[in-house]
Design a protein around this nucleic acid. Structure first.
Lengths: 141, 141
DNA sequence: TCGATATATGAAGGGTCCTTCATATGAAGT
DNA sequence: ACTTCATATGAAGGACCCTTCATATATCGA
């Protein structure tokens, strides 16, 4: 078994009890795992669905265009046309990007005639951006 | 000029004053831009370098594997071996992922003999994850 | 109703990057 | 010194996705 094989089975208890005195090269096992710490960390982790959803949200905000849209909307409500002007990009890019943000509930919009006004969906997003900016702007030694 | 062309030049003042009474089909211009709002939003936005750096950070955390690593490390310090076991993935994936997080100052590590213990680099990251989780776990109507 | 405007969407191409496999480095034990 | 173990790293391929171009939908004005 290659060294880099997944190590999930190690902590599962559905395997028969290990025979004693087996040789190291016969089993796929690592020696340095602190099973107690691993179990505790696993217990402290959020639900897998939450992690998946958060990953999708962060990935969406991880794109420069979409992040610029979000930071712009953190200041004020703007229409697609304003956003295209502000970013210096095409209406198509803005619209596609806003759709992604919309589907992830990061932004919301209201329509007024032909004009669609976008804004951040909820205060968490603005808070997340603020903390993220604090992080990246932090002084390093 | 196509409809979806970039609209950056509109707000720049380096162009000669527009001749009066020019016909609409001769110029590349949108009508619905609220220039005042755009300027205000632009002024409120963080520095471009900050946005770029934040995008890189969020993109890194937007990968499920790396996000799971980060949430695990939010609970406690763990070594590479623990993390591979916890995630049920290979040591190679964990090591590559940790390198990305390390380069972005999201995690840090200390070496003790052969073992590398990783932890979150600073409290901002944990706060960001907590707010992000609040966001995705929020009840929707 | 016809044209113009604002926005949305579909398809496609090209670049990015995540995973895998293989190997390297470096420390500890014998 | 040599082996073993923990971790790091390089290369490659295949999937994913961002941008662009083209077009569709819908609203307003004449």
């Amino acid at each position: 078994m290659p060294v880099n094989a997944p190590r999930a089975a190690i902590l599962r208890n559905d395997a028969p009890p290990a025979p004693s005195r087996r040789r190291k090269e016969d089993v796929c096992e690592v020696q340095c795992v602190d099973e107690l710490k691993v179990r505790r960390a696993r217990g402290a982790m959020p639900a897998p669905e939450s992690v998946t959803a958060l990953a999708a949200t962060l990935k969406a905000l991880g794109d420069p265009t979409r992040l610029r849209l979000a930071t712009a909307l953190a200041a004020t409500e703007l229409c697609v046309c304003d956003l295209a002007t502000l970013l210096g990009t095409s209406q198509s890019v803005v619209s596609h990007s806003l759709r992604t943000l919309r589907q992830l509930r990061i932004v919301r919009y209201r329509k007024e005639g032909r004009v669609a006004y976008y804004s951040l969906d909820d205060p968490h997003v603005a808070a997340l951006l603020a903390i993220g900016l604090d992080h990246v702007e932090e002084e390093r030694e």
